[in-house]
Design a protein around this nucleic acid. Structure first.
Length: 556
RNA sequence: GUCCCAGUAGCUCAGCAGGAUAGAGCAACAGUUUCCUAAACUGUAGGUCGGGGGUUCGAAUCCCUCCUGGGACGCCA
């Protein structure tokens, strides 16, 4: 357990014990102990509203309860310096902060592992994200999904979950046929021949490129083969090309996946039939109008859904149900899907399917990525795949820089609409909060370099009692919060808690930097202690930034 | 019509399993550099938390309702 967690938990134990000793409540009437860090520093290090919560049970005024409670409180057991009653009945604890200096050796020892907690309990959790159709370039929405998904995975892993990252490849269905036909048209055009794009074709630059490549590689060979052979070849070729590009783009975006799962494989290994059979056995299937239906309304959906169309083919939902069944059979206790906003209406039916298969509804969690609107020169930019004028993920990265894009997307709660102002992110780059955090890191590196040049080494033998300045204590407190921030971000699935933390840590550091000098030949002991302190900040900043896929530069 | 997201300072947003005087960045204003990176720091000013009800010791936070903006609702994927 982290030192800060330990202190908090001891404090909570003592509060509980004091309530019992004072006879204010029975063991089973005890409300949950709420500890908070007051916004106002003069209200102490921790505060509890226990006395107010007990008002009803004890039938007394909160301030009187607080009085009795602190009379029975054992201060010696929880590093407490002073206790005060304030306001309507808050009990404020002023801690003896000497325990905080133990944080420094802990962080130096843990290094890149600092921040890890065990709240996840090694629960097996799978996160499926991006899963864009392999029919064109990744656009803004995918970039946001990739950033949020990857950050969430990193955070979950750090918090002690056993995480698997997965990409579902939609390589079956009409869109792939359209891809093949689009490639075909571009191939003919590359050879100077007439061929119309299909109605729902893909007009992206990438498809034109595939057509050219095929023409260069094979000449007019495929003009003369049978249509089905050409179709199959181009389908395969287009798919492979698109997937490779997609993987490369994601890799460059610092996102990796453990599993790439092919939709087509579900058609070949009988898993769709098995899933359908399971639904049938559980009584959720019926036939109507020549189609096969899923009785999803029985499980909270607004209408029943078609699984097998009149023409005998599956809807998108059918293999997807088989896919989710397969995920659960692989032993994941929790599935998190990160979907685009356009899939929002799809959630109830998927949850219904999970239940119809005999699993708990909340085995599946869906995080919706809301739309990103891009503004340039004060104008909203469109991002339609169809027009071929899409703003791609690559365009965005080229324009803003990878660190900026990753930070900006991690910074906002995923399920809210977001305006991304390019002019702001680019032209006034000092407004970009990512620089603020990176600058703190670079500053620390610079001081450490100079310390080395002066042959001052950071040893674990430093006299940490040298850490007494107010700004230093602030920094220490903030460092101690990191594992708690990670745990909270993981449990609430909120990567933006980490960017908030990064900003706060950078801010307390900058403030310390301006108030106190680290390197001071007149006072070697303190210099060593402060070097150890800023080294701890460096480690923590680095760890926090890496959770959201942002680099920590040594120089700026 | 049903559902989702949002409405908090001039702008962009935190805060929302109820807690003390609602926070930050940018913009505005006033300062800080013989000293480790001024991409920084310190301070001032700025808000009826969309409106209205309710729940209670206490509401930006929970419930109801209305208004405004964005989005989703295929035998497409």
């Amino acid at each position: 357990m982290n030192i800060v967690e330990e202190v908090q938990s001891k404090l909570k134990d003592e509060i509980r014990a004091a309530v019992i000793k004072a006879g204010l409540a029975q063991e089973d009437e005890l409300p949950n102990v709420v500890l908070e860090i007051p916004k106002d520093k003069t209200h102490g290090d921790y505060s509890t509203n226990m006395a107010m919560q007990l008002a009803r049970v004890a039938k007394k005024a909160p301030r009187m309860i607080a009085e009795e409670l602190i009379n029975h409180f054992d201060k010696t057991k929880a590093s407490i310096d002073k206790i005060e009653i304030a306001g309507p009945g808050f009990i404020n604890f002023y801690m003896d902060n000497s325990y905080l200096t133990h944080l420094i050796p802990t962080i130096l020892q843990a290094g890149e592992n600092y921040g890890e907690t065990t709240v996840g309990n090694q629960q097996r959790i799978q996160v499926e994200f991006v899963s864009a159709n392999p029919t064109g370039d990744l656009h803004l929405g995918h970039a946001r999904g990739a950033a949020v998904g990857d950050s969430l995975c990193n955070i979950l892993a750090k918090a002690g979950y056993d995480v698997s990252r997965e990409y579902y490849i939609n390589d079956a269905g009409n869109q792939i046929n359209n891809l093949a036909l689009s490639v075909e048209a571009r191939y003919f055009q590359a050879l100077g021949l007439e061929k119309e794009m299909p109605e729902d074709g893909y007009h992206g630059e990438d498809i034109i490129g595939i057509g050219k490549k095929l023409a260069e590689e094979f000449g007019d060979k495929y003009v003369h083969v049978e249509e089905t052979e050409r179709f199959d070849t181009f389908r395969q070729y287009g798919l492979q090309y698109e997937m490779e590009k997609l993987k490369k783009d994601l890799e460059d975006f610092r996102v990796r996946f453990d599993v790439w799962y092919s939709e087509t494989s579900l058609y070949h290994n009988g898993k769709i039939d098995t899933a359908l059979q399971k639904l049938r056995d559980n009584g959720y299937i019926y036939e109507k109008d020549g189609a096969t239906w899923f009785k999803s309304t029985e499980l909270g959906d607004d209408k029943d859904r078609v699984l097998i169309k009149q023409d005998g083919s599956y809807t998108y939902l059918t293999p997807d149900i088989a896919y989710h069944k397969d995920k659960l059979e692989r032993g994941f206790e929790k599935l998190i899907n990160i979907w685009g906003a356009d899939h929002h209406g799809y959630i109830p039916r998927m949850k219904a399917a999970i239940q119809a298969l005999g699993y708990a509804k909340d085995a599946l969690e869906v995080e919706i990525i809301q739309l990103v609107h891009l503004y340039k020169n004060g104008e909203k930019m469109k991002m339609s795949k169809r027009t071929g004028k899409a703003v791609t993920m690559r365009d965005l990265v080229d324009e803003v820089g990878l660190d900026g894009v990753r930070y900006f997307f991690a910074m906002r709660s995923a399920d809210t609409h977001m305006d991304f102002d390019l002019d702001l992110a680019v032209s006034q780059s000092n407004e970009n909060p990512v620089y603020y955090a990176q600058y703190a890191h670079a500053r620390i590196c610079s001081i450490l370099r100079q310390g080395e040049e002066q042959n001052i080494t950071i040893s674990k033998e430093v006299d940490l009692a040298q850490i007494t300045a107010e700004k230093e204590i602030e920094v220490l407190k903030k460092l101690g919060e990191f594992p708690l921030a990670v745990a909270e971000a993981a449990e609430k699935r909120m990567p933006h808690r980490i960017t908030n933390y990064i900003f706060e840590l950078a801010s307390t550091f900058h403030s310390f930097y301006n108030a106190e000098k680290v390197l001071d030949v007149e006072n070697m002991e303190r210099t060593k202690a402060r070097l150890a302190l800023i080294k701890s900040v460096q480690i923590t900043l680095n760890n926090a930034l890496s959770l959201i896929g942002v680099s920590a530069p040594e120089k700026m």
